[in-house]
Design a protein around this nucleic acid. Structure first.
Length: 274
DNA sequence: AAACGTTCCCGAGGCGGCGT
DNA sequence: ACGCCGCCTCGGGAACGTTT
């Protein structure tokens, strides 16, 4: 099958706007639609961000069917400064930070039934000490009010990330191997979703074959194999996420304890409760 | 100020050696 | 012979520097 004739050359080369690191994490089928969400046709970052969630467009469907199209992943855009206009302070000097472009790293987050991308639309940076801060670091999240902070969807580890909903299920209500049980349960849901997408692709291939058979005589298009199933991380990893989650709460509790301790210190020194 | 490119550091995983 | 521990290497992420 010949590649489809290229469109007029004036067409915007959307994927060239993406940082090179994006292309290592994002699947090629996700490059263009995500670039269109993030950038203006001129290559400038979009300044107005309306929503956190972005979904791959269902139209137009590629013809002949391409397997990558059926396995695209949604995107969560995290941009507290641009989106909500929340002023952030430098964790080092306390001065106001500005946003310096897009955060060059993408994270992949594992959800209950599929995966999605976590993209940082702000790259907070201090104007005075030039200190850049990871947009989802504790320094940033702790500066947000609870309502906005809880909108952040995932618990991160060094490699991957896990959606909050999943973390809830990891809190062991009973004793036993909850993380390995949960891992296999999530893997099963993921594999069902993968099978559903594979069936969609194969059935569209079949439709395409029938359509082609009506017009052409002999040339049967060669379809590529559907994407292989991506296995989930080990149960051990889920355990790591769970402990990360606990540790992050520990920091919050430490904060509470410190402030309480501070009040008590004050009370002790003045012998009065303020 | 915003965005991009690069470097450095840290963490995880793998392999090899030693001890039981 | 098997298991555990330690070291080394590689990759990813954060920080830094530069350019427009």
């Amino acid at each position: 099958m010949q590649p489809t004739p290229s469109l007029p050359q004036a067409v915007t080369d959307w994927e060239s706007f993406l940082p090179s690191q994006f292309k290592r994490v994002l699947q090629p089928a996700d490059w263009v639609w995500i670039a269109k969400c993030l950038y203006e046709p001129t290559g400038q970052l979009r300044q107005q961000i309306q929503t956190n969630w972005f979904y791959p467009p269902m139209q137009p469907k590629p013809s002949p069917p391409e397997p990558g199209w059926y396995f695209r992943q949604r995107m969560f855009l995290w941009a507290p400064m641009r989106m909500w206009g929340i002023p952030l302070k430098c964790p080092q000097c306390g001065r106001k930070m500005h946003h310096s472009g897009i955060y060059p790293k993408v994270r992949e987050v594992i959800d209950m039934d599929s995966r999605y991308y976590l993209v940082g639309g702000d790259y907070p940076r201090c104007s005075a000490c030039k200190l850049p801060v990871c947009p989802w670091s504790q320094d940033v999240l702790s500066q947000l009010d609870v309502a906005h902070r809880t909108l952040f969807p995932a618990v991160l580890t060094t490699q991957l990330a896990l959606d909050r909903k999943c973390v809830t299920f990891l809190r062991p209500r009973t004793s036993g191997n909850s993380s390995s049980y949960f891992q296999s349960a999530v893997e099963e849901v993921h594999s069902e979703e993968w099978a559903r997408r594979t069936i969609q692709y194969l059935s569209d291939c079949e439709h395409h074959l029938r359509k082609v058979a009506l017009v052409q005589s002999a040339a049967t298009p060669a379809f590529s194999a559907p994407a292989p199933f991506k296995p989930l991380p080990l149960a051990q990893w889920f355990e790591t996420v769970h402990s990360n989650d606990i540790l992050s709460h520990l920091d919050e509790m430490k904060g509470v304890i410190t402030s309480t301790y501070g009040r008590i210190l004050k009370m002790d020194s003045t012998k009065k409760v303020q």
